[in-house]
Nucleic acid binder design. Structure first.
Lengths: 141, 141
DNA sequence: CTAGGTGCAAAAGCTTTGCATCTAC
DNA sequence: GTAGATGCAAAGCTTTTGCACCTAG
């Protein structure tokens, strides 16, 4: 348990939402200036393994991560094309979906992803977006 | 309409399943040896735009494509961790999901992805997998 | 003739890795 | 003392791009 890893842990849990490896590097360096890019990239998979961090793939070349704050494991994402936000939505029915379809194929489900890409009319009209993470908990399916 | 593009079109529609840009390059070169990597990468987005090819993102760094053979636009994928196959599954209810959740967030849905990662017991037990694309049409949700 | 397509090779962007050094225990 | 972590810089991999050339219409 080194100082660099502690700085990375701390930076991760200060994050309120999604972040990239590079953003995490910046934040961790504010805490411990000696944290290097390699250490961040080497530590992230460990955090994901231990379920402290969740990896969120939205189909870009960039990987996103988020602190895994006691949420159920079945989350869907709504990705806004305009305001560039990722909303996390509880999606309990996904478990049913995965087991149903996998069973028909003779496969055992490991994980599931459900993502909606959407556009934000408010952003398009006003040039800004008033939504924030507090909205996340108001929708689910 | 150049010879290289025709070779790429032809290679695309000879594909029965998912392929990567690099695989397409190889196949296209079998038809016209002068096809270059740049042309493949420049042509693929055009094919996607014109709905001749569908882009399938499974969260790896690699982009997959498949010929868009008259399937409904709402497809889910089951990705087998062991036999490395991607099964396409009709998922008509996804439309409902996207509009429901997006409406709650005040967003307009553009597209949706539903993907299940699964493991293949047959592959694990025998070291090979007998499933093939014919199975795809037997499951849906 | 010329707008646009092409090939080549270099660049870009994110992530991984080899290697020598360092450090927590 | 030593197993394992670290930093740096280089390499890897897929995709994109600048540029000069070529070609379809």
């Amino acid at each position: 348990m080194t100082g660099q890893r502690m700085a990375i842990f701390e930076a991760v849990f200060k994050e309120s939402s999604h972040f990239t490896a590079e953003e995490l590097l910046d934040k961790a360096r504010l805490i411990d200036r000696t944290v290097s890019r390699a250490t961040v990239y080497r530590t992230l998979p460990i955090l994901v393994e231990s379920c402290l961090v969740r990896e969120v793939d939205i189909g870009t070349n960039l990987k996103y991560y988020m602190p895994n704050k006691e949420q159920g494991s079945h989350q869907a994402q709504v990705i806004c094309n305009d305001c560039q936000k990722i909303f996390e939505i509880p999606a309990p029915f996904m478990e049913w979906y995965g087991s149903t379809v996998s069973a028909k194929l003779g496969l055992t489900p490991i994980s599931q992803r459900l993502q909606v890409t959407a556009s934000c009319q408010e952003y398009q009209a006003k040039g800004f977006c008033s939504k924030d993470k507090t909205i996340e908990s108001s929708a689910s399916a």
